[in-house]
Measured scan of single mutants.
Amino acid sequence: SIKEIEKEEIIKVLKEVNFNKKLASEILGIPLRTLYKRLKEYGI
């Protein structure tokens, strides 16, 4: 599903940037606030 793909992509990017959420949100092209929402939604 799209949610699974998105979750995997978020985890992959977070690992690449050593869990720097600000940098991860910039790489993913989403606002930091949205990233936090996704992390909560996906239980990351």
Rank of each mutant, 00 (worst) to 15 (best):
G43H: 09
E8H: 12
T34E: 15
E16I: 12
A24G: 03
I10D: 01
N20L: 03
L39F: 03
L35S: 00
K7W: 09
E16N: 10
E16D: 11
K22F: 10
T34C: 07
G43A: 08
E4N: 11
G43V: 05
E26W: 10
K12E: 05
Y42E: 04
L23E: 07
L35A: 00
N20P: 01
E16C: 11
I5F: 13
E26L: 14
F19I: 01
E41K: 08
E4W: 06
K3F: 11
E6I: 08
L35I: 03
Y36S: 08
E4C: 11
S1M: 09
A24Y: 01
K22C: 07
E26A: 13
L14M: 12
K37S: 08
E16A: 15
F19G: 13
K3A: 13
G43I: 05
I11S: 04
L39H: 01
Y42H: 07
A24P: 00
I11E: 07
Y42A: 05
S1F: 04
N18T: 04
Y42P: 02
P31K: 08
L23A: 11
E6R: 10
K37T: 08
K12A: 12
R38L: 15
Y36A: 09
K3M: 12
Y42G: 03
V17S: 08
K21S: 08
K37N: 09
E9S: 12
I44S: 04
L39I: 14
T34D: 14
K12W: 07
I10K: 00
L35P: 00
E4R: 07
N20G: 02
L23T: 06
F19H: 07
G43K: 07
I27S: 04
G43F: 08
E8N: 13
K3R: 13
E4M: 08
L14Q: 00
K21C: 10
I2Q: 14
K22N: 06
E8L: 14
K15P: 01
E41I: 07
I11D: 03
L23S: 06
R33M: 11
E16Q: 15
F19E: 03
V17A: 10
A24F: 01
A24M: 03
R33N: 11
S25W: 01
K7I: 15
V17R: 02
N20W: 05
Y36D: 08
I2T: 13
K3C: 07
K40W: 13
N18P: 02
K37L: 14
R38D: 02
E26M: 13
V13C: 05
R38Q: 09
L32I: 10
N18C: 09
K7D: 06
K3W: 12
I27E: 03
L14A: 01
R33H: 12
I11P: 01
L28P: 00
K21M: 15
T34K: 08
R38V: 13
I30M: 11
K3T: 12
R38F: 15
K12F: 07
L39A: 02
K22A: 10
L28T: 02
S25Y: 02
P31R: 07
K3N: 14
E8I: 12
I44F: 10
L35K: 00
L14P: 00
S1D: 13
Y36N: 14
K7G: 05
R38K: 15
E16L: 15
R33V: 10
L32V: 07
L14K: 00
K15A: 09
R33E: 15
L23P: 01
I44H: 05
V13T: 08
E16T: 12
E41R: 06
K37Y: 09
N18V: 04
K40N: 07
K21R: 11
S25M: 03
T34Y: 09
I30K: 01
K40M: 12
K7Q: 06
L32Y: 05
E6G: 12
K40Y: 11
Y36E: 15
S1V: 12
